[in-house]
Design a binder for these strands. Structure first.
Length: 339
DNA sequence: AATACAGTCAACCGCTTCCAT
DNA sequence: TATGGAAGCGGTTGACTGTAT
């Protein structure tokens, strides 16, 4: 028993789209929306499968698509997210505005993957990476021998994953604060008595707005999971240590509320492209000879601070890393905009 | 100029996931 | 809870283009 076709394929056109077909599809979607893709071709007067129409629209005709060369920031984001998420192109694409998963996939396969391969890294073989790391750390006695340079690259690759992790946590935190700001329609308090870190802000806001039931009530499930993970599972209301630890992981300066300081990241439109890391493996991979100067996107954090935290990040224990990965995996199917 | 080869990318295929019933 | 249809996703293909010989 063969699988039933997604649509009646007899008489349907395949292959490259003509400008006329594009025009028909574009005009129809702009006027009516796509609705049911299955029904769209007949309504739009196209001799195409609905699937083909959806693909053409999402990968080519959609007005909010950016085409052309990838920027260094975009490359960096792809590399880091791929290190963390693997071939989950749609998940990666959600962090690259105006880029499609198909485009990112093609770019990875034709450019980035080869660049990594030249460095002796197989980004698809996680076991190879962990083997190399174990060997580099002097653990065990692997039968395979690798060059010192390759081992170094492997370790650095792992570092790229940690960069991505730190960015995820930081992004989660930013989103949380932005969501709170949006919901409450007010600026965070800048006066004294605000405890450090994200929870401090949440708590202070809650004090300001008594109708807020709980700081976690405004979080999506995924964000909540990440926050919990960031604090080693111990981030609950009143847990200053958890909040402080999260601040460290997220690479953020804790605002000095007592000094009237306002968190520099509050209200800032921090897209992924703006959150560049400095002195990184991905910077090296991208040929950035002076990769310490990764602040071109306009982030307001001291890069030296971040570098220090990046080094600290490499010392995170395995349990913590697994927690993060689990959070990412479980949340990637949620409705959170983060994944 | 002709041919072979390599690289790129739009599009397709088939499997998985989601959602309505 | 089970089922079927629709949409989404990632791997793969093949046409096209550029470069080397």
């Amino acid at each position: 028993m063969g699988r039933s076709p997604c649509c009646e394929k007899v008489g349907l056109k395949k292959g490259p789209w003509t400008p006329e077909e594009d025009q028909k599809l574009l005009a129809y979607v702009e006027k009516h929306g796509h609705g049911s893709w299955r029904a769209l071709p007949a309504r739009a007067g196209l001799q195409r499968c609905g699937k083909s129409c959806r693909l053409r629209w999402t990968n080519y005709l959609r007005p909010d698509i950016k085409r052309g060369e990838f920027s260094v920031q975009e490359e960096q984001t792809i590399i880091q997210l791929h290190a963390l998420l693997g071939n989950r192109w749609s998940a990666i694409a959600t962090h690259l505005p105006k880029r499609t998963d198909n485009e990112i996939k093609n770019y990875w396969n034709t450019h980035l993957k080869k660049r990594l391969a030249k460095m002796g890294i197989d980004p698809c073989t996680h076991k190879a990476k962990s083997d190399a790391l174990s060997s580099a750390a002097g653990a065990g006695g692997g039968r395979r021998s690798r060059s010192a340079a390759n081992l170094s690259h492997m370790a650095q690759w792992e570092s790229a994953r940690l960069e991505a992790e730190a960015r995820l946590v930081r992004e989660s935190k930013l989103r949380t604060v932005a969501a709170l700001q949006h919901q409450m329609g007010s600026s965070p308090p800048s006066s004294a008595a605000s405890p450090p870190g994200c929870l401090g802000v949440l708590r202070a806001w809650r004090g300001q707005r008594s109708d807020l039931e709980s700081p976690t009530s405004t979080l999506s499930f995924a964000e909540g999971r990440l926050l919990m993970a960031a604090a080693g599972g111990g981030l609950v209301d009143g847990d200053y240590q958890g909040a402080s630890r999260m601040d460290n992981l997220a690479g953020l300066e804790v605002p000095d509320a007592a000094a009237g300081g306002e968190a520099p990241w509050l209200g800032e439109a921090c897209g992924w492209g703006q959150l560049q890391v400095g002195g990184s493996f991905t910077g090296m991979l991208l040929g950035d000879k002076n990769s310490n100067c990764g602040c071109a996107g306009g982030d307001s954090y001291g890069n030296n601070d971040y570098l220090q935290e990046e080094e600290e990040g490499t010392e995170m224990n395995k349990h913590y890393w697994n927690t993060i990965l689990n959070s990412v995996n479980s949340s990637s199917s949620s409705t959170s905009p983060a994944f």
